[in-house]
């Protein structure tokens, strides 16, 4: 049964252009790795804020604020790690 379902899904995936995407992985453009952070952080912020809201209208502003806060926090962590890295290389 699972095998049959898998075959059906595979046939669908091969026949639909969108399905082929998931079977043949797309190559990430050079230098795109860092930029991939932004949409993911936005999705995290949206889900977090949606879990605290009563209606979708309440989440737009808080989502943007959370998005910026997460980015700033991650930037701060990156700077901290870079400084620690430089100190270790220089003094140890």
């Amino acid at each position: 049964m699972a095998s049959l379902l898998g075959s059906v899904c595979l046939a669908l995936g091969d026949s639909l252009p969108l399905g082929t995407l998931f079977i043949h992985p797309i190559k990430l453009p050079h230098g795109a790795r860092l930029w991939m952070l932004f949409p993911l952080v936005f999705c995290v912020a949206a889900v977090y804020r949606a879990s605290r809201a009563q209606s979708p209208g309440e989440i737009v502003g808080p989502t943007l604020r959370t998005f910026v806060s997460i980015l700033l926090g991650m930037f701060g962590i990156a700077i901290g790690l870079l400084i620690a890295h430089e100190i270790i290389l220089r003094y140890f």
């Binding site: 936005f42 999705c43 889900v47 949606a50 809201a53 209606s55 979708p56 209208g57």
Partner: peptide
């Protein structure tokens, strides 16, 4: 409305 937000922000 929240369902749509969850669906988009998780499926994407």
């Amino acid at each position: 409305g929240l369902a749509a937000v969850f669906c988009l922000a998780i499926s994407l």
